[in-house]
């Protein structure tokens, strides 16, 4: 049975697309047949982060409206044959996504893939609603910052009431906290909410903490998800996150201030 996972947050710019790209890439690297869908109709971006923007011919809305079939619209990742991308449409028609249309596409994808990752748009309107509606699990992406945490809590409320699972009484969407853009130095100074603060408030299990890292920008510049950069902390943190999601027990790294050793001080490591 394919698993549908929504990457959601309420607030924009917190790292949903970055997380979707690395999460999907990491699942595929572990041999899972994975497809990642951009639900951000009108603001297509996942293709850029995945580095396949020049190969988008048909998109999600084309498939829903019967203008193309899935085989034509799915873009195979250039590095991993287990991974496919379904781009968002750039249409300005807000109602381009219908519940029945989304359901049909997800059902068709479920026949072929192990994991379907849905990159949600910001907000709590139609696009965000449909991205989460059919989910089995949710990665709730949050920054250690008041407005992001509050919005994540709103989204938790929607996950527990406005999803197929909850409406049909088929149990709960399994929620995972992904805390991104974390800066342990600022936390230690008391300037930033800590992992524990956010966990206390949102009260859902922690899947991963991704540190604030300049490599994320570098990765998006070159169109290679940051998880592929295993020399970097953010890349390593995403790798841990995927391993944990698949049931491995890995300690959380990058949540404490790294005490620099003499040598790394000397050489600026």
């Amino acid at each position: 049975m394919a698993k549908i996972i929504v990457v959601t947050s309420g607030k924009g710019g917190v790292g949903k697309t970055t997380t979707s790209a690395s999460f999907a890439t990491g699942l595929a690297a572990r041999g899972k047949k994975t497809v990642v869908i951009d639900f951000d109709v009108g603001l297509r971006n996942l293709d850029l982060i995945m580095g396949c923007e020049r190969r988008v011919v048909f998109d999600f809305v084309n498939v829903i409206q019967g203008e193309a079939n899935l085989r034509q619209a799915l873009i195979k990742d250039k590095n991993n044959e287990n991974l496919s991308i379904l781009a968002a449409s750039q249409t300005r028609d807000k109602d381009a996504l219908s519940e029945e249309g989304v359901e049909k596409v997800l059902n068709d994808l479920a026949k072929e893939f192990d994991y379907i990752v849905c990159d949600s748009p910001a907000g709590i309107e139609r696009g965000a609603h449909l991205a989460m509606y059919f989910a089995d699990e949710a990665l709730v992406v949050t920054n250690p910052e008041v407005s992001s945490v509050r919005d994540s809590d709103r989204v938790l409320g929607l996950l527990s009431s406005k999803t197929h699972k909850s409406e049909k009484g088929e149990g709960r969407v399994r929620e995972h906290l992904v805390l991104t853009r974390y800066n342990p130095v600022r936390v230690e100074k008391g300037e930033m909410l800590s992992v524990k603060d956010v966990q206390d408030i949102l009260a859902i299990p922690l899947l991963g903490v991704i540190p604030e890292a300049s490599a994320v920008l570098t990765a998006s510049n070159s169109g290679a998800p940051v998880i592929l950069d295993q020399n970097n902390e953010a890349g390593q943190a995403y790798d841990d996150l995927v391993a944990r999601f698949l049931g491995e027990d890995r300690p959380h790294r990058f949540v404490e201030v790294q005490k620099k050793g003499f040598l790394s001080k000397l050489f600026g490591g």
Binding site: V146, R150, K189, G190, E191, M192, L193, D197, I201
Partner: peptide, 12 residues
């Protein structure tokens, strides 16, 4: 003064 505690209390 450190503001993270204020943030936490307001959020709660």
């Amino acid at each position: 003064a450190p503001t993270a505690n204020t943030a936490r209390d307001r959020l709660m």
